[in-house]
Design a protein around this nucleic acid. Structure first.
Length: 860
RNA sequence: GGCGGUGUGGCGGAAUUGGUAGACGCGAACGACUCAAAAUCGUUUUCCAAUCGGAGUGCGGGUUCGAGUCCCGCCACCGCUACCA
C-alpha cells in the first residue's frame, strides 16, 4: 500500500509521449475536406543559436491553440521555419572566420534540438529556412513576376546609408535617425536601388485596416499613423522682384483655411533656394551650417530654439496682389517632408506664434471659438495660439470659403475647392508611406535576379535559370559586399542577346523573406512560389501570434506582399489580408540582481549565482539589490535558459508557468518561485491521479453531484478561456478544480471521470502529463486523439442555488432557493430572512428587485 | 504635441460583460507530521474597528434598484510616433 516511491518524473515521461505523437503522425498536416481547416502560426525565429524564454512563450501559446483546435475537430496546420538570412551571420563570419552558411545551419540544428523537447505540436516535415535555395529561388521567381507586373522598379534615389553595416536601409528601418540594427547615425547617399511600389497601395492598405477586426487596435493605429494620410492644398507663392533663378516657392498645407492668417513663409536650410542664396551670403551659410549640425534625432528638439534667418526675398500672397510676405530660412522646416517650405499662420499654430513674436511678425486670427464663454484672449493680444481639433465647429472671421460656422474639416474642403476654382492651388492627398527600397549591399541574402547588359540594359534573369545561387567561396576580410569583389560570380551572359553581361550584386532586404513565408508553408516543396490548391485550402492564417515589435515593418510588408502575390496570381484575392486574427504577446521579464564594485559601477549576477532567501551573492556574500521586472538581456544577466528549466522541471512545467501568471498580451515576470510552484502543482496532479487509480471501489458517493457540477463548470470556463486567449484564467480554474477533486469524497467512478477530464482540459498546456495520467487510469488511446469535453448544461446550474440579498445595493445576506422558484416566492423568502427583517425594522420595502438566478435587491 | 493603452490587497492578477469585488497563484503568519530540517498537509491573510459594524477597484461627479464594468471631467504611469506644415 505504501508505494509512494514513484513520483512525477517529467524526464521519464516527456520523451516517451513525444515519440508516440510522432509515430501517430498527429501533427502532420494533410488537406482534407471532412473537417474545417485551421492555420495557426507564430512568427518564425531568427536562428541566433539559442531558444530564449520569449520563444517558449510564443510557441507555447501557438501550441495550446493547435492542440485545442485539434481536439475540437479541426484539421490544423502548425508549421515552423527559420528567418535565416541577415547580418548576424556575416558578422559572425567576420569575427570567427567561418562561413555564414555553416554558422546559420549549425544554429538551426541547435535550435531545433532545443525546441523538440518542449513537445510542440509542429509539422516538422514542412520546415524550411529562408536561406534554403529551394525557398529563395522561389522568392526570385516571385520577384520576376512582380517586376513584370510593374510592382518593382529601379530608381536613382537618396537613400539611408548605414555606415557601420555598410548597407542601405528602408525608411521604416531608420529609427531616430539611426540604423535599426547597428544604431549608427544614418547618412544620406544617392544610389540606384530597387524599390517595391508599396506607396501605390497606400490607400488600400489604410482602408483595409478597418476590416481587420481581430487585430489589436494598437497595431492598426500604428499602421495607420505610419501610412500617414493627409489631405491638403498644393500651391505656390510667387517671388517678387528678385534676380534669383527661382520664380516661386511651392508649399503644401493641410490648413488652407488659414491662408488669410498667413504672415510669413519659411523654407528649410536644405531647400534649393536656401542653398542657392547661401552661396553669396556668408551669414546665411553660417546659419545653415549651424542648423545642419543640430541633429534632428536629438530629444532636445522640443526645447530647441526656433530660429529664423530673414532673407531679402518677399513673396506675394496668392489672394491679394499687394500682400507681401517675408521669406525666412528656419531651422524647424524639414526638407524631406512636404515641399520643404511652409507658410506660417501664427494665430493657429503655437510654433508659428512663438516665431512671429520673436521676429515681430503680424498675427491674424482666421477663426475663433464658436461659443466664447469665458473672456477670450486673441493670440493677437497675447493669448495662446487657437488650435482646436479639426472636427470642432468654430466661427470663421476671415474665411477663405464656406460659411461662418463650420468645422475645420469642412473649411479645408471649402478652401481647396475655392483655390482650385480660382487657380490658386490644387487639392492633394499625401501619404507618409514611401516606396520600399529593397536593395542591400550584403552577401547573406537573396540575390536579386537581374542582369545588366551593355546592349539590352536591365534584363530580368530567365526563370529557367533560377535559383541564382549564392557562391560559397567568399571572403569577409574586408568591408563591403563580397559578391562585388568575387572573381567570377557576377560574370554571366545576357538572356536576350547572349553577350557577356553582369549580375546585380545587391541582395534583398531580409524583410522580403519574411513577407511571404506564411504562404510558402502551405506547400513548402512546390516548384512554384505557391501551389494554388494548397493556398486555397490552407490560407488565410487563422491565428497569427508574435511580438508587438513587428507591428509596422513585418506586418505592413506582408500585407503588401499578399496583394502583390494576388496580382501575380500566386494567391487568391481572398488572401489580400493574409492574417485573419493577430495576437501580440508581451515580453518575458526577470528581476536584475545588482551589486556595485569598488568604483561604484554596477555588477550584475545571474539568477543561479544568488541566494534569494539570504539576499546575498553566493560566491562573495555581498548583499545585492533587486531591480524588478526588466526585459531579459544578456548584459544585465537577468536571463533564464529554457534548456535549464526543462532539465530541472520538465517542459510541462515551463509551459504551464509561462501561461499561468499574466494575461498573454502583457509582460510576464519569470520568477524561480513561480516556476517552482508550477512544478509542485503538476506533481500534485500526478500524485492525485496515482491516488485515484489505487482507490478502493467501495467508498462513499456523497460528493458525486458536487464534483460533477464543478467538473462541468470547469469544462465551460476552461473552454471559454482557451477561446479568448484567457490562458491565465483557464489555468486558475484548473487549479480550483484540482483542489476540489483532491478534497472530494466522491465515488471512484466519478473521481476517475474527473481526473480524465482534468487531463483533457490540461492537455493543451501540459500535453505530456495529460497523456501520462490518461494511461495511468488505463484509458484507451491518446488524449490528443480524444474530442474536447462538452459541458453538460444540466450540471451548470444546480437545483438549489444560492442567491445573495442586497439592501440598497449592499450585500447583507443570502438564501438557498430552488432553481425554478417563482419571483414572488423568492421575494417572500428573502423578506423573511432574519437579517433583512431587522434591516426593514417593520417597515415595508420601497421596492424589491429579483433577478432570477442572480440576485435580490431590497430597496428601503 | 498626436495616437494607443493601463490603473483592483504586500505582489502577479480574477470577475459569466451592469448583479456576492479580490477567484487562482506567489509571498507572509500560525499549526500538524518530524529528534530536527526539507518535503507534504491544514488554517488564516483587502483595510479600519476587533462586538455590532464601517470603508473599499487612481481622483471628482453622474446614470441606475445595483457600477471595477456605462457617461462626463481630471490625475498618474507605460508604449508608439513626431519640429508632419
Amino acid at each position: 500500500m505504501k508505494s509512494l516511491m514513484k513520483r512525477y518524473n517529467p524526464a521519464e515521461i516527456e520523451g516517451k509521449w513525444q515519440t508516440q505523437w510522432d509515430q501517430a503522425d498527429i501533427f502532420k498536416a494533410k488537406r482534407s475536406t471532412d473537417k474545417p481547416k485551421y492555420y495557426v502560426l507564430e512568427m518564425f525565429p531568427y536562428p541566433s543559436g539559442r531558444i530564449h524564454i520569449g520563444h517558449v512563450r510564443n510557441y507555447t501559446m501557438g501550441d495550446v491553440i493547435t492542440r485545442y483546435k485539434i481536439a475540437t475537430g479541426h484539421n490544423v496546420l502548425h508549421p515552423m521555419g527559420f528567418d535565416a538570412f541577415g547580418m548576424p551571420a556575416e558578422n559572425a563570419a567576420m569575427e570567427s572566420g567561418g562561413h555564414p552558411k555553416e554558422w546559420t545551419y549549425q544554429n538551426i540544428s541547435d535550435m531545433v534540438a532545443q525546441l523538440k523537447p518542449l513537445g510542440f505540436g509542429l509539422d516538422w516535415s514542412r520546415m524550411f529556412a529562408t536561406c534554403d535555395p529551394e525557398y529563395y529561388g522561389q522568392q526570385q521567381a516571385l520577384f520576376l513576376d512582380m517586376l513584370e507586373a510593374g510592382l518593382v522598379y529601379r530608381k536613382n534615389a537618396v537613400v539611408n546609408w548605414d555606415p557601420v553595416d555598410m548597407t542601405v536601409l528602408a525608411n521604416e528601418q531608420v529609427i531616430d535617425g539611426k540604423g535599426w540594427r547597428s544604431g549608427a547615425e544614418v547618412e544620406r547617399r544617392e544610389l540606384t536601388q530597387w524599390f517595391f511600389k508599396i506607396s501605390d497601395m497606400a490607400e488600400d492598405l489604410r482602408t483595409a485596416l478597418d476590416t481587420l477586426e481581430n487585430w489589436p487596435k494598437k497595431v492598426r493605429a500604428m499602421q495607420e499613423n505610419w501610412i500617414g494620410k493627409s489631405r491638403g492644398l498644393d500651391f505656390s507663392f510667387s517671388i517678387k522682384n528678385s534676380q534669383i533663378p527661382y520664380k516661386e516657392i511651392n508649399v503644401y498645407t493641410t490648413r488652407p483655411d488659414t491662408l488669410l492668417g498667413a504672415s510669413f513663409v519659411a523654407i528649410s536650410p536644405d531647400h534649393p533656394i536656401s542653398k542657392f542664396l547661401e552661396r553669396n551670403d556668408a551669414n546665411l551659410a553660417k546659419f545653415n551650417a549651424e542648423c545642419r549640425k543640430l541633429n534632428t534625432s536629438e530629444e532636445a528638439l522640443e526645447k530647441a530654439e526656433k530660429r529664423g534667418f530673414k532673407t531679402a526675398l518677399n513673396v506675394q500672397h496668392p489672394y491679394h496682389e499687394n500682400w507681401k510676405l517675408p521669406v525666412y530660412v528656419a531651422n524647424f522646416v524639414l526638407m524631406d517632408y512636404g515641399t520643404g517650405a511652409i507658410f506660417g499662420c501664427p494665430a493657429h499654430d503655437q510654433r508659428d506664434l512663438d516665431f512671429a513674436r520673436k521676429y515681430e511678425l503680424p498675427i491674424i486670427s482666421t477663426f475663433i471659438p464658436a461659443k466664447v464663454e469665458e473672456p477670450w484672449m486673441y493670440p493677437e493680444d497675447g493669448g495662446k495660439a487657437f488650435v482646436p481639433p479639426k472636427s470642432e465647429q468654430v466661427k470663421y472671421i476671415k474665411a477663405l470659403a464656406g460659411t461662418d460656422f463650420q468645422t475645420g474639416i469642412e473649411a479645408v474642403e471649402a478652401a481647396i475647392a475655392h483655390c482650385e476654382e480660382h487657380n490658386i492651388g490644387k487639392g492633394v492627398t499625401r501619404y507618409r508611406l514611401r516606396d520600399w527600397g529593397l536593395s542591400r549591399q550584403r552577401y547573406w541574402g537573396c540575390p536579386i535576379p537581374v542582369i545588366y547588359c551593355k546592349q539590352c540594359g536591365v534584363v530580368p534573369e530567365r526563370k529557367s535559370n533560377l535559383p541564382i545561387l549564392l557562391p560559397d567561396d567568399v571572403s569577409f576580410d574586408s568591408p563591403g559586399n563580397p559578391l562585388d569583389r568575387h572573381p567570377s560570380w557576377r560574370k554571366t551572359t545576357c538572356p536576350i542577346c547572349g553577350n557577356p553581361a553582369v549580375r546585380e550584386t545587391d541582395t534583398m532586404d531580409t524583410f522580403v523573406d519574411s513577407s511571404w513565408y506564411f504562404a510558402r508553408f502551405t506547400a513548402p516543396r512546390a516548384k512554384t512560389p505557391t501551389n494554388l490548391e494548397d493556398v486555397n485550402y490552407w490560407m488565410n492564417v487563422d491565428q497569427y501570434i508574435g511580438g508587438i515589435e513587428h507591428a509596422i515593418l513585418h506586418l505592413l510588408y506582408s500585407r503588401f506582399f499578399a496583394r502583390a502575390m494576388h496580382i501575380t496570381s500566386h494567391l487568391p484575392e481572398s488572401c489580400a489580408e493574409p492574417f485573419d486574427a493577430l495576437f501580440t504577446q508581451g515580453m518575458v521579464t526577470h528581476s536584475i540582481y545588482q551589486t556595485k564594485d569598488a568604483k561604484g559601477r554596477s555588477v550584475y549576477h545571474l539568477p543561479e549565482e544568488v541566494d534569494l532567501d539570504k539576499r546575498i551573492v553566493k560566491a562573495t556574500g555581498e548583499v545585492f539589490e533587486i531591480i524588478p521586472s526588466a526585459k531579459m538581456s544578456k548584459s544585465k544577466k537577468n536571463v533564464v535558459d529554457p534548456t535549464d528549466i526543462i532539465s530541472k522541471y520538465g517542459a510541462d512545467t515551463a509551459r504551464w508557468f509561462i501561461l499561468s501568471d499574466s494575461p498573454p498580451e502583457r509582460d510576464v515576470e519569470w520568477t524561480a518561485a513561480g516556476a517552482e510552484a508550477a512544478h509542485k502543482h503538476l506533481t500534485r496532479v500526478w500524485a492525485l491521479s496515482d491516488q485515484i487509480a489505487r482507490l478502493e471501489k467501495h467508498n462513499s458517493e456523497q460528493d458525486d453531484q458536487a464534483l460533477l457540477e464543478i467538473m462541468h463548470k470547469t469544462i465551460f470556463d476552461v473552454t471559454q478561456g482557451l477561446e479568448s486567449f484567457g490562458f491565465n484564467a483557464a489555468i486558475a480554474k484548473l487549479y480550483a478544480f484540482t483542489n476540489a477533486l483532491s478534497k472530494s469524497k466522491a465515488s471512484k467512478l466519478i473521481q476517475r471521470q474527473a481526473i480524465l477530464i482534468l487531463a483533457q482540459l490540461m492537455a493543451p498546456m501540459t500535453p505530456h502529463l495529460s497523456e501520462e495520467i490518461w494511461s495511468m487510469q488505463g484509458a484507451e488511446g491518446l488524449v490528443i486523439q480524444t474530442n474536447w469535453p462538452q459541458a453538460d448544461e444540466d450540471f451548470l446550474v444546480s437545483n438549489i442555488i444560492t442567491m445573495p440579498i442586497q439592501v440598497n445595493g449592499k450585500r447583507r445576506a443570502e438564501i438557498q432557493v430552488e432553481r425554478d422558484l417563482s419571483v414572488a416566492q423568492i421575494e417572500q423568502n428573502a423578506l423573511s430572512v432574519e437579517i433583512i427583517k431587522k434591516a426593514l425594522n417593520g417597515t415595508k420595502p420601497k421596492k424589491v428587485i429579483v433577478v432570477p438566478g442572480r440576485i435580490i435587491n431590497v430597496v428601503i
